[in-house]
Every structure is written in structure tokens, then in C-alpha cells.
């Protein structure tokens, strides 16, 4: 287990391994992003990316078929795209998306089959979907997703690849959006009500089966697992039984699925991370944790 100590000089908000697990990207309130080379238990800082004018909230690695590319979003309202040059190995900022008027809280690359497409959510209530075409220009679509801030936007992962994503916001709602070719825009497919306070994070379980698993983390200290047997069926909800009752001790900030989609990591404001698995009876049980 490699512990990477004080690398940023402020709180870190996201830490993500790349596709092959060889590179780690971290981003922080010190407005920088750091890239590490990971080899077994040791790590080496290879680059510090500067450019954001505010704390950087989230980073997302693009699929390797597009090159070594990272997207980042920040309190400064911008989404920056960074690329490592194949030969010189130097990183540079190759594109910027700055249409939001408030903090951009989340950013995520789409499944590679859809191309190089980013979904970003902002405190101005809007979600923007930015497509980077091969000829270098970009096309962006903006959707007013939530009446308050948007804190989570995640692409759907299912057998058939469709332009579809879920968003969560400060109105406590989760909305599923599907691309409508006629209007060349995304339309609301479903609204999932279940949280009594902000939806902080969403995670769509990677799976090739038609059954979709969507986990949601909320300021109301609960995690809900939403399941849909097959597309346009109804969504069923199941509240995760937390260790001490049905609520976690603090705000639940993040949820993330393992690559095989059967283990859920829940990151709670009490600085503890717990791992959960569905048992044969369909209930979710804790199966591990990471202490401070």
C-alpha cells in the first residue's frame, strides 16, 4: 500500500488512476493538478499543471485511444483539457471550456464509443456536454439541469452505448437525460426523488448487463442504490443500511464502483471510506473499510 504524503499544500479534492493504473492525477485547493508515475508501491511526481485560478474540484482521464489526456474543473468556472505530448512528454493545456458563470463542480469523459465527449456540472444550475471533434473544433450543448447547483453528472454505462447521463443537484433530485437527435439536445428521461437534501455524487456501475445500478450520495447522510431492470423500466430504490442505522455519521461526499461494478466505495465526511457488496438476498453489506 503506497501512502503519498503531503504533496499539495492544501486539501486535495480528487485522486484518480489512469486507465492502466500507471499514472495518478490529484487536484487540490492549491489550484494545481499533480501527475504521478505509479510503479508498485512507489510513486514519482512527474508534472504539476498550473492554470486554474481557483481550487480544482475534479479530474477525469480520457480513454487512452485519444492520447494521454486529462480534463479538470474548478471553482474558477473553467474546464481545462491537458495533454502529454507523446515525444517530449511535456504536458500542456490544449483546450478550455468556460461557459459557466459559477464553480464547475464535476467533469467526466464519456464512454470511448461516444467519442471524446465531456459532461460538466456547475453551481449555475447548468450542465454542458462538450464534444471534441477530430478536426480540433469543439461543439457544446448547455442544459439547465437543476434549479440550484449541479454537483454530479455521470455518463450511463450499459450494454448498448447511448448518449445518456444522470445529474444530481442541490434540489435533491436525480435526473436522467437522453440525447434526442431531433432537437440535437438532451431531454429529461426520468426524475428520481428520494433524497431530502443535496445530491452530492452519483456513480453508474460499469456492467454489460441490461440491469442498471446507479448509486447516489447525499448531504442527507444517506446512500441510495437505484436499479432499473432494463432501459425505460421504472427505477427501484434501496437505501444503503449504514453501520449505525440507516444514516451515515456525516455528509456522504463520494460513491464509486469497482471496475467490475460489484463493489461500492462510500466516502463519508467523517473521513472514513467503507466498501459495500450486494449479498444473495439483494441487501447491501459492508465488506471492508479504509481507516484514517
Amino acid at each position: 500500500m503506497a501512502a503519498i504524503g503531503s504533496l499539495h499544500n492544501d486539501v486535495i479534492h480528487d485522486a484518480v488512476l489512469d486507465y492502466y493504473g500507471k499514472r495518478l492525477a490529484t487536484c487540490s485547493s492549491d489550484k494545481t493538478i499533480k501527475i504521478f508515475e505509479i510503479d508498485g508501491d512507489n510513486h514519482k511526481l512527474i508534472e504539476t499543471l498550473q492554470g486554474h485560478e481557483g481550487p480544482v474540484w475534479q479530474v477525469s482521464w480520457a480513454h487512452p485511444k485519444f492520447g494521454v489526456i486529462l480534463a479538470s474543473c474548478s471553482f474558477d468556472g473553467k474546464v481545462l483539457i491537458w495533454r502529454e505530448d507523446e515525444s517530449t512528454k511535456n504536458w500542456s493545456n490544449i483546450a478550455q471550456h468556460a461557459t459557466h458563470t459559477e464553480s464547475v463542480n464535476c467533469v467526466q469523459w464519456s464512454p470511448p464509443e461516444l467519442g471524446a465527449v465531456l459532461v460538466c456540472g456547475s453551481s449555475d444550475g447548468n450542465v454542458s456536454v462538450v464534444e471534441f471533434n477530430d478536426d480540433g473544433n469543439t461543439s457544446a450543448v448547455t442544459i439547465h439541469a437543476h434549479s440550484g447547483a449541479v454537483y454530479a453528472a455521470v455518463w450511463a454505462v450499459s450494454g448498448t452505448v447511448t448518449k445518456r447521463f444522470a445529474t444530481g443537484g442541490s434540489d435533491g433530485l436525480i435526473k436522467i437525460w437522453t440525447y434526442d437527435a431531433a432537437s440535437n439536445n438532451y431531454v429529461e428521461e426520468a426524475v428520481l426523488e428520494g433524497h431530502s437534501d443535496w445530491v452530492r455524487d452519483l456513480a453508474w456501475a460499469p456492467s454489460v448487463l441490461p440491469k442498471a445500478y446507479l448509486a447516489s450520495a447525499s448531504e442527507d447522510k444517506t446512500v441510495i442504490i437505484w436499479t432499473q431492470e432494463q432501459s425505460n423500466a421504472a427505477w427501484k430504490k434501496q437505501v444503503l443500511k449504514a453501520p449505525g442505522g440507516d444514516k451515515f455519521p456525516e455528509t456522504v461526499w463520494r460513491v464509486s464502483w469497482s471496475l467490475s461494478g460489484n463493489v461500492l466505495a462510500v466516502s463519508c465526511g467523517d473521513n472514513k471510506i467503507t466498501l459495500w457488496k450486494e449479498n444473495l438476498k439483494g441487501e447491501w453489506e459492508e465488506c471492508g473499510s479504509i481507516d484514517e
Binding site: V11, S256, S258, L259
Partner: peptide
């Protein structure tokens, strides 16, 4: 940024059974 945006904790999975944990 206001306090409610400053996310202090997170976890993400990586290839080969890796789990990156981020804590204060």
C-alpha cells in the same frame, strides 16, 4: 470557495484491484 464545495474525502478504483483513497 464556500465550505460546502470543499470536498475532503474520496475513493476511486483502478486497474488490477487498486483502490485510491483520499482522506484529510
Amino acid at each position: 470557495p464556500p465550505r460546502w464545495l470543499r470536498r475532503p474525502v474520496g475513493a476511486s478504483f483502478g486497474f488490477g484491484g487498486k483502490l485510491v483513497s483520499l482522506q484529510l
